[in-house]
């Protein structure tokens, strides 16, 4: 009898000890929560971004936090774990509804994946504003505060066209993730601004970069191997552009190519200043976030809801301005950029 029961009881005992230890941790946590826990009458505004790590969303979150503080709101920020984490974003919105949020600002991972839960939120009387990325259909949310990515693409394309002058264009497209909403708008906008259509023979080829520098470099290398005459490069964002530049340099072509981009991250603007990127189009995440928080504050105070698409604007940033194209220089860019 002895051995087994002794063992068993020791096992049960150690489980119990472990359980008690966790209780202790949990109550420690409770202490921490007690300090920061929102008062019942706080107006809660939720922010759900795509990921935690992207500096664009970090800027958004910082701006939302700052604005919430000045307006006396309580901000609860949440994010998906990776690009494409619909499940995580849906859960975040559900939790925020449960938490009693007055308004939710969301950068949807994907334009259709969130529709059900957004409807649930709005049915529960929560103001829902899409930031940065529109939903499909766009009126699934109360309002959208975002860059007009198509317009930004047009600005990029128009600049590239002007900078190239009357040379015969040979274009490389460093796309992000094909099928993504933003990706499509920027890509098509660029073509429109450049004045050509999809499938135009001037397009030497396209590469998928997922907006990452390493993949941008590999993609550009492959495209250059395919066609050495490339003289215009579209990039989905500045990291992809930085990667593309590395490839151009290794082919000794960095001087002959017009490398353009979109985003307005500080690293990107520094690259404009350094002459690596000819021009980039800056967008304004902090504007989206602070305008969003303001809208929720308004709604809480007066019940007034914003509607429709609100363009938070985009500026062409370049140190080599082209006649007829509005632009700001890199010094201005560095004061207004996001990330570090």
């Amino acid at each position: 009898m002895q051995t087994s029961h002794h063992d068993r009881s020791r096992y049960a005992l150690s489980q119990l000890t472990a359980g008690c230890a966790v209780f202790a941790i949990a109550f420690g946590l409770a202490g921490a929560i007690g300090v920061s826990y929102a008062q019942a009458d706080d107006v809660i505004v939720g922010l759900v971004t795509k990921t935690e790590v992207n500096p664009f969303f970090v800027k958004m979150r910082q701006a939302a936090e700052a604005e919430a503080k000045t307006k006396g709101l309580k901000l609860i920020a949440r994010a998906g774990k990776f690009d494409g984490d619909n499940e995580g974003q849906v859960a975040a919105i559900e939790d925020l509804i449960s938490a009693g949020a007055k308004g939710i600002l969301v950068t949807p991972n994907n334009s259709s994946g969130m529709l059900g839960v957004i409807k649930k939120a709005r049915d529960a009387g929560v103001l829902v504003i899409a930031l940065d990325t529109a939903t499909d259909p766009a009126d699934a949310v109360d309002a959208t505060f975002a860059t007009d990515n198509f317009q930004a693409g047009v600005q990029q394309g128009a600049y590239a066209k002007a900078a190239l002058g009357d040379k015969k264009p040979v274009i490389a497209m460093l796309d992000g993730t094909p099928g993504g909403t933003v990706d499509t708008f920027r890509h098509n906008g660029f073509l429109k601004g450049f004045g050509i259509a999809e499938g135009d023979p001037a397009i030497a080829g396209a590469a998928i970069t997922n907006g990452a520098q390493d993949k941008g470099q590999v993609g550009m290398e492959n495209l250059l191997s395919k066609n050495g005459d490339i003289n215009v490069v579209y990039t989905i964002n500045e990291p992809a552009a930085a990667g593309g530049y590395q490839a151009l340099k290794s082919f000794g072509k960095e001087k002959d190519v017009v490398l353009t981009s979109i985003d307005g991250g500080c690293a990107g603007v520094r690259n404009v200043k350094a002459g690596i990127i000819a021009a980039t189009v800056m967008q304004f995440p902090y504007k989206m976030a602070s305008m969003g928080v303001d809208a929720v504050a308004d709604y809480a105070a007066s019940g007034k809801k914003p509607t429709g698409f609100v363009n938070t604007g985009s500026y062409l940033i370049t140190d080599k301005p082209m006649p007829g194209l509005d632009s700001k220089d890199s010094a201005w860019g560095l004061q207004n950029c996001w990330g570090d």
Partner: peptide, 12 residues
Amino acid sequence: LPSINSLVENLS
């Protein structure tokens, strides 16, 4: 044997 329900790993 101690108990017929013992796990074998608890046996000598």
